[in-house]
């Protein structure tokens, strides 16, 4: 079963919940798809880590074969190509690796080579396999790295996906194939605003989902009213505690530090398994 953990708002407790679920499962794969800021490994501290690069295709031009016809330059919809003094130049950060230039070239002068855009690491922390996608700095989109991390994680057993924050493309890529989605929020107007966006994403992706309210305690009745109106189940409430905040701050796993947290995550995993059938 693949469980995706999302939160519209960053800092709502997505990594806390994803790590907690992987711990509760005991034997599991935790895959960090928050590739701009992969932090799960700071908690699991995996060992025997193997890293491999994630590549995307980039055109390379054969100057001998190129006739300077400009077809590729004119058809590239991203304007990644320029022809100067009869020789094409490619601009990597503008290129989307779509392959159009190679396809339209009448001379077969375009070949494609891999360009590194990030890395996927895999290591073990006890029964948990920790897979981390990390985007190279300066790269625009994490989507290829997310796809590679999910592929590395596979589909065997319980796979917990720590998604990027927000509700844009990379989140969709990370949550698309999930059997169940957990939406983590906090009881604030910001939390509710961003939760609405992720809930809309769930409708678009047609994924079953439920909500975890983190830092519960402070009163924000608008959140409960909205959840009830939407018919979204609350799977768990995690009360704010200074001890939990401190454990997270120092990179310690809440599940292994705190009896109350353990009960919450065990219960949460059971509820997800029931709901996902």
């Amino acid at each position: 079963m693949r469980i995706a953990v999302l939160s519209g708002k960053g800092g709502a407790g997505k990594t806390l919940v994803a790590c907690g679920l992987a711990c509760a499962a005991g034997e599991a794969v935790y895959v960090d798809c928050d590739v701009e800021e992969p932090n799960g490994r700071l908690f699991f501290r995996p060992e025997q880590v193997i890293s491999r690069p994630v590549l995307r295709k980039m055109p390379v031009f054969d100057a001998e074969k190129c006739s300077g016809c400009r077809r590729c330059v004119e058809r590239c919809r991203f304007n990644a190509l320029v022809l100067v003094k009869g020789a094409p130049m490619v601009f990597g950060e503008v290129c989307h690796s779509c392959g159009l230039c190679a396809w339209v070239c009448p001379e077969g002068a375009v070949r494609e080579e891999g360009l590194e855009v990030g890395a996927v690491e895999s290591g073990r922390a006890g029964g948990i396999r920790v897979v981390t996608g990390e985007l190279k700095l300066g790269e625009a989109t994490g989507v290829p790295v997310i796809a590679a991390a999910l592929e590395e994680a596979g589909d065997e057993g319980t796979v917990v996906v720590d998604c990027p924050p927000g509700s844009a493309c990379p989140v969709m890529e990370a949550a698309r194939e999930a059997d169940y989605c957990v939406l983590v929020t906090e009881p604030t107007a910001f939390g509710l605003h961003d939760l609405r966006l992720v809930a809309e994403l769930m409708r678009v992706l047609k994924r079953p989902c439920g909500v975890v309210v983190n830092k519960a305690g402070a009163d924000f009745p608008e959140l409960d009213a909205w959840l009830e109106a939407e018919g979204l189940p609350v799977l768990a409430r995690i009360p704010y505690s200074r001890a939990l905040a401190a454990a997270s701050a120092e990179g310690r796993l809440a599940y292994r530090q705190d009896e109350a947290a353990r009960r919450i995550f065990d219960g949460l995993l059971r509820r997800i398994e029931e709901a996902a059938g």
Binding site: T15, E37, N39, L42, A249, E250
Partner: peptide, 20 residues
């Protein structure tokens, strides 16, 4: 930023990005 291992790591990545 915030005083957590995540906050520290993310800040360092951001500082490098800004300097680029």
């Amino acid at each position: 930023t915030e005083p957590s291992v995540s906050g520290l790591g993310d800040m360092q990545r951001l500082v490098r990005t800004a300097s680029m």
